[in-house]
Design a protein around this nucleic acid. Structure first.
Length: 202
DNA sequence: AACATGATAAACT
DNA sequence: GTTTATCATGTTC
């Protein structure tokens, strides 16, 4: 169990793109209210501050919300979007650099019944954990977990390497970042090819 | 006022 | 079966 947990060094690379790619196939686990839920990461997005206009920390903008990203990697950055959705990010980099990887979609693994209850759904459908807001809700992730270390034994949230092999990775432009101008063209959205659990598009 | 979205409904093939 | 449009929603700045 503990040996499967990703080591702190994993998160300290300055190369967020490669890191985002490596996160595919890893397993995100949470124990909220004593209930274990987990899923394979099938879609991520890299955010590389300060030069990335799509990042909250563009130009090293330092606020109460973004300051969490300026810490060294290996912690969770969770923020509220559109007032409803909790989005889960992994903070990466050695510190100083406000890099982060957004987890956009999961393939359910453990605690599926718990996830169904949280989503108020009857049966498993791709949309259970497809989409950053959905997966957070399914795993019980809220802003209460913001800043939580992903490497501590006591953490309620962590990542595991269960030896899952990723066959092929697709790179595509990120969505919802039109305002980021030239940065919107950077192909920093990464997903596993031919996976039913990624949000739309194949 | 802006926002890294999701659920729903209505329109398509 | 799929894609497209609309809007609800609350925190940040």
């Amino acid at each position: 169990m503990t040996s499967l947990k990703l080591p702190l060094e994993f998160y300290l690379s300055e190369d967020v793109i490669t890191l985002a790619e490596k996160l595919l196939g890893k397993v995100l686990c949470t124990t909220i209210n004593g209930k274990l839920t987990s899923g394979i990461i099938v879609e991520t997005e890299a955010y590389k501050a300060p030069e990335d206009k799509a990042s909250h920390a563009y130009q090293n903008k330092f606020t109460d919300r973004t300051k969490i990203m300026f810490r060294p990697g290996g912690i969770a950055y969770i923020y509220l979007c559109y007032g409803i959705h909790h989005l889960f990010n992994v903070v990466t980099g050695p510190g100083e650099k406000a890099h982060a990887v957004l987890v956009r979609a999961l393939e359910p693994l453990d605690g599926i019944q718990v996830m169904l209850n949280r989503r108020k759904m009857q049966k498993v459908q791709p949309r259970l954990t497809a989409g950053p807001g959905s997966l957070s809700k399914a795993l019980g992730i809220t802003t209460a977990l913001c800043g939580e270390p992903l490497t501590e034994k006591s953490s309620k949230i962590w990542l595991e390497d269960r030896g899952i092999i990723v066959q092929r990775v697709i790179r595509s432009p990120r969505v919802g970042v039109d305002y980021a101008e030239e940065c919107a063209a950077w192909n920093w959205r990464l997903r596993i090819k031919d996976n039913d659990w990624t949000s739309k598009a194949k």
